[in-house]
Amino acid sequence: MNARHHPTDDLLLEYGAGNTNEAQSLLIATHLAFCPRCRGIVEKAETLGGALIDATPSAAMSADALQGVLDRLDEPDDAIAFGDATSAPLVAGTDTSIPRPLRDYLAHGSAESVSWRRVAPGIHRHTLAMNAGDSASSAYLLKLAPETVVPHHGHHGEEMTLVLEGGFTDGGKHFIRGDVELADPAVDHQPVIHADGPCLALIVTDAPLRFSGLIPRLLQPILDR
């Protein structure tokens, strides 16, 4: 089934333009694997980018630039850049239910084989390492037991949650595999995990969470780590 909750069109345009940070890009790219609708929007943003490059005043290349490149055309191509859609062979134990952009961030390509840390009853966390030491945002996976009530919390910044497995209900809306929930600083929310199984989710924040109750506040240092 196709996703019903999407990132904003603004964010899809920013991703297409190449302005989102690595953590945001990871979440959006993973959502795109689930969502033909959003792939279409990003494709249009990229078409716009191409048209803008085509229409832009050019900067003169040096006189020998073309010859320099022509001389290199027959060199073997040994560099496979990250982000190339060249499919790497799947290693044993790879979990193909997790789409590729996220799989590339998991040791052995599986959410089972990474190290999980228990941060609260029914809640396990695995922090994903971003290439750039980007302190402005972070990405992590949460594994939540059925019927877990995630502590009531607001946010200093924006938070995006992408469901990979299972689902949850928040503010009367249901989020399942492929769906993205957007929470902004004005929203105090309290997701409840569906009863039919555990939930695996990718979360990207651009600022630390802030919990409102006393007990949750004790969890704060753990979740921020």
Binding site: N2, A3, A17, G18, N21, E22, S25, L26, I28, A29, T30, L32, A33, F34, C35, P36, R39, G49, A81, F82, G83, A85, S87, T96, S97, I98, P99, R100, P101, L102, R103, D104, M130, N131, A132, D134, G178
Partner: peptide, 24 residues
């Protein structure tokens, strides 16, 4: 764009893979 992110911003650029078995 991807070369710019890789070389100027020095970040990875996650993209979906059209051949991914997980692709919907």
């Amino acid at each position: 764009r991807n070369l710019r992110i890789d070389r100027i911003r020095r970040e990875r650029r996650p993209e979906f893979d059209p051949e991914d078995p997980a692709l919907v």
